[in-house]
Simulated assay, not measured.
Amino acid sequence: MQQFVNTALSGLTLGMVYAAFALALVMIWRSTRIVNFAQAPMAMVTTFVALAVIDAGHSYWLGFGLALLSGLVLGAVTERVVIRPVEGKPEINAVILTLGLFIVLHALASVVFGNRYRSFPAPFGVRGIEVGDTTLGITGFGVFSIAAVLVVMVILVALFRYTDLGLKMRAAALNQEVARLLGVRVGRMLTLGWALASLVGSLAGLLIAGGSLVHPGFMDSIVVFGFVAAVLGGLESPVGAVLGGLLLGLSLSFVSGYVGSQLVALTALAILMLVLTLRPGGLFAPAAQRRV
Rank of each mutant, 00 (worst) to 15 (best):
G240S: 05
V152K: 02
F218N: 09
Y60H: 02
A209H: 03
L266S: 15
R127H: 13
G137S: 11
S202D: 03
D133C: 06
L207R: 13
L278Y: 11
R33Q: 03
R118L: 15
P123C: 14
F64V: 04
A195Q: 01
A109Q: 05
L159F: 15
W194F: 05
V143K: 06
G65H: 08
G128Y: 07
M153V: 01
D164F: 07
A67S: 10
R290E: 11
A204T: 08
A209T: 01
A122R: 08
V17T: 14
L248C: 09
Q176R: 14
D220C: 08
M219G: 01
E130M: 12
L25Y: 15
F21H: 06
L72M: 13
R80T: 09
F160T: 10
Q3H: 15
G187I: 10
L243R: 10
A268F: 13
L235G: 06
V81K: 01
I103D: 00
L263P: 07
L62T: 04
A148M: 08
G205C: 01
L269W: 10
M153H: 04
G193D: 03
V186K: 04
V95C: 06
L243E: 11
R84F: 13
I222N: 01
D55Q: 13
M16H: 09
L14Y: 14
V275P: 07
